[in-house]
Design a protein around this nucleic acid. Structure first.
Lengths: 156, 156
DNA sequence: GCTAATCATTGATGCAACACGAACCATCTA
DNA sequence: TAGATGGTTCGTGTTGCATCAATGATTAGC
């Protein structure tokens, strides 16, 4: 190979940091979300569904990387409050197609608004531009991964 | 006010994304870490301790935002494998000062090396520069927060 | 049309990560 | 000397999952 001076940077694993930061958001977020009748994972599910409405439960399980049985319970919670709706898929009537309802969209917006203070606190050390950068990096990292699974599931 | 076109961006809450991405890393990381006798939270603790060796357990509890009693158990695990050492603080002999041992540093490096493949997979959609940006943003966000508590605890 | 395989659902069981409280010892502080 | 504080131990409870087993509805292979 070449004699390029391989920089050999000290690796910089983000995993632990990510975990820790997520924990902080979750801890504070829980108490903020509670009055809205939501838990962190509900919020995640709603967030995912906003972008990918019309997902199969299987595809949802894939993106959330959760067991199918747990998805059922989670959707039960959300459906009980009419935040999502399950329709049977026309092509394959075994499948349920999950969609965000208007109420769901509103509740999600409400939750995000309520979380503003929380994120301000957790991300206090970052300025506006940095937060935006962080957001788009996260979005990109997540989007690149299992997105395909969901889209494929829809299009097939 | 001015007639500047206020962009009114759609808020962009990173919380849910952060949670979701952290979950992915954790899920994959667990199986990689297991052979090393570590769990995710051990890795987090070691990571924190690398930067802030000589922390009081209280300060550690603050940064990790964990209950003091659980810190004890966590440190017991790490001490049992000689990855950390507890010394009594000279100024206040009630306090334990926690330090990373050489073995701890090595094990941590080993773990991070083992996690390379995991992060490559999870951050596949990000290039090298983006990953580095993400890392420093996370670092900055975390450092800005409870850091003070730890440093203050040491310096007082 | 009979027989798999598949999707969603329910229920049971279990584990691990905590939080929380009570009681204890050693130590510092007033 | 009395009271607060840091760490430790133990017990208890909760929650977020995974996992396994069983069922009903549907589709697909032959």
């Amino acid at each position: 190979m070449t004699s390029l001076p391989v920089v050999n940077q000290p690796v910089h694993r983000s995993g632990a940091l990510l975990d820790q930061l997520a924990r902080r958001v979750r801890l504070r977020g829980e108490s903020v979300l509670a009055p809205l009748g939501l838990r962190p994972r509900h919020l995640i599910a709603l967030t995912v569904l906003r972008d990918r409405s019309g997902c199969t439960q299987q595809a949802l399980a894939a993106t959330l990387e959760m067991d199918g049985t747990n998805i059922v319970g989670l959707l039960n919670d959300l459906e009980a409050e009419s935040l999502i709706a399950r329709r049977r898929s026309p092509e394959d009537r075994r499948r349920h197609v999950v969609e965000l309802t208007d109420a769901g969209v509103k509740r999600l917006a409400k939750a995000e608004f309520a979380l503003a203070a929380v994120e301000d606190e957790v991300f206090a050390a970052l300025n506006e531009a940095q937060r935006e950068t962080l957001y788009s990096l996260l979005q990109q990292a997540l989007g690149g991964g299992e997105d395909i699974a969901c889209v494929a599931a829809i299009n097939e």
